[in-house]
Design a protein around this nucleic acid. Structure first.
Length: 421
DNA sequence: TCTGGGGTCCTAGGACCC
DNA sequence: TCTGGGGTCCTAGGACCC
């Protein structure tokens, strides 16, 4: 049995924990650069506001006070996520953290009533300890647990916990489930299914194996097996290391000057190197990309790929290569809107294969330097120490006009119960 | 004027091998 | 006129997820 615990309207809920008055009106949370909507409270969803809608469409209604709008505050969301996960861990350390707001449990096969009872207890505890409402779906496979969870969220009569075990109930539910609402079926595959005259999950599981595989590939076929109750996506407890790391941002304004772009890719390389060291990896390649706005013609987007003779996580080296790569793809007179750095092909810090012909990078002094910088920044906050190449107060930085305080991670931004001033 | 960021897996086609 | 069969590895692009 799998249980999927999923936070309701997670980012919006995080904001409401610290500012309950936000729950009175629809609330939307914006992406980086205040570009588009990435989270909505229940009331905002009821207005029909879609994930990914551009923010400017709602500016008037925000000005009129009908809708509340916040920039994203990922520092807060990440911390709240940790609290939720820790609470869940107190039930069972065997847990798969699937995303910032979701986790799977593996459960023993017990009666539906007992499973439901346990679910309600977990839900109650998370709410009490963190203030975050969650929904729980329990079923024989992950894909079915996802569907159970969705229905728990949608229909209040389940009180936030739905157990989907009996063949009869599963089938009844699948008759009401559209292909797009199945985990792993997106708009493209759903369209393909429609060409095969499949309009519900139930019609999908009743089709021939060969036909399904031909239509939507091996991944789609696995999803169908899961819907039939055959588990194909195993429980994955240990969080594995990332295989690639991307750091990229849209700029707050259009950028044409190569010096600004250099600062930005230096900053992204630096952030990437930090993440790399965090998971004790070194990168064997780095790519850099820059792009103009995809909504304005002509669209210009270029990237380059640089192999590293010796895998490294040493920031100055990665900055140097990022800037070198940038210069090879930069073309003047374009209004760039976005840049990024991708690191990949990782090797473990401790099992490095050294190039016979090139002198190694990782002398102990460099390693020590990076460790020290990381320690200072962990203790005194992001960018307490940084590289000059990243620019001090850069003008290309993303917009973030309406962010809530870092209530839980910064002494200067603690929640004020009453303003004594 | 204004439209995010960070990932994973699969597949088809090209290059190559015997 | 007639030009094999079977395989691996790599990569770019597509599709998906949150």
């Amino acid at each position: 049995m799998f249980a999927l615990i999923d936070c309701n309207n997670f980012y919006a809920s995080c904001e409401e924990v610290f500012n309950p008055s936000l729950s009175k009106k629809p609330l939307i949370i914006l992406s980086n650069n205040d570009g588009c909507i990435i989270a909505r409270s229940k009331k905002a969803k009821e207005l029909g506001i879609q994930m990914g809608d551009p923010a400017y469409l709602f500016k008037e209604r925000v000005d009129r006070g009908e809708i509340q709008m916040l920039s994203s505050n990922f520092t807060l969301y990440a911390d709240m996520s940790q609290r939720v996960m820790q609470t869940l861990e107190s039930y069972s350390p065997q847990m798969e953290i699937y995303s910032i707001d979701e986790a799977f449990f593996e459960l023993e096969d017990r009666s539906a009533d007992r499973l439901c009872e346990d679910g309600l207890k977990i839900r109650q505890k998370v709410k009490q300890w963190t203030g975050i409402p969650v929904s729980i779906g329990i079923a024989p496979t992950k894909t079915l647990a996802k569907i159970a969870n969705e229905t728990a969220k949608k229909h209040p009569e389940f009180s936030g916990v739905r157990v989907l075990i009996s063949q009869f109930e599963i089938r009844k539910q699948l008759e009401k489930t559209e292909p797009e609402d199945i985990w792993g079926i997106g708009s493209a595959l759903a369209q393909r299914l429609r060409t095969g005259r499949i309009y519900t999950a139930c019609e999908l599981i009743d089709r021939e194996d060969r036909f399904i595989q031909h239509l939507i590939g091996i991944s789609g076929y696995r999803t169908v097996l899961e819907l039939r109750g055959i588990s194909c996506f195993p429980f994955e407890e240990e969080s594995e290391k990332k295989q690639s790391i991307v750091c990229s941002r849209s700029f707050g304004r259009k950028v044409s000057d190569i010096r600004d772009l250099e600062e930005s890719v230096a900053a992204f390389a630096s952030r990437g190197a930090e993440k790399l060291r965090n998971q004790k990896s070194r990168a064997s390649f780095l790519s850099v990309f820059i792009a103009t706005s995809p909504f304005v013609q002509p669209y210009e987007s270029r990237s380059c790929h640089i192999e590293l003779p010796n895998p490294t996580s040493f920031t100055p080296e990665l900055i140097r290569l990022a800037k070198k790569g940038l210069r090879s793809i930069y073309r003047p007179h374009f209004a760039y809107k976005k840049a990024g750095v991708l690191l990949g092909d990782f090797v473990d810090e401790n099992s490095e294969q050294i190039d016979y012909l090139t002198p190694g990078n990782e002398n102990p002094k460099k390693t020590k330097l990076m460790q020290t910088i990381d320690r200072i920044n962990r203790r005194y906050g992001k960018n307490a120490v940084q590289f000059a190449a990243e620019g001090l107060d850069p003008s290309w930085r993303s917009n973030r006009a309406n962010a809530s305080p870092k209530f839980t991670t910064s002494w200067n931004e603690l929640l004020k119960i009453q303003d004594l001033a």
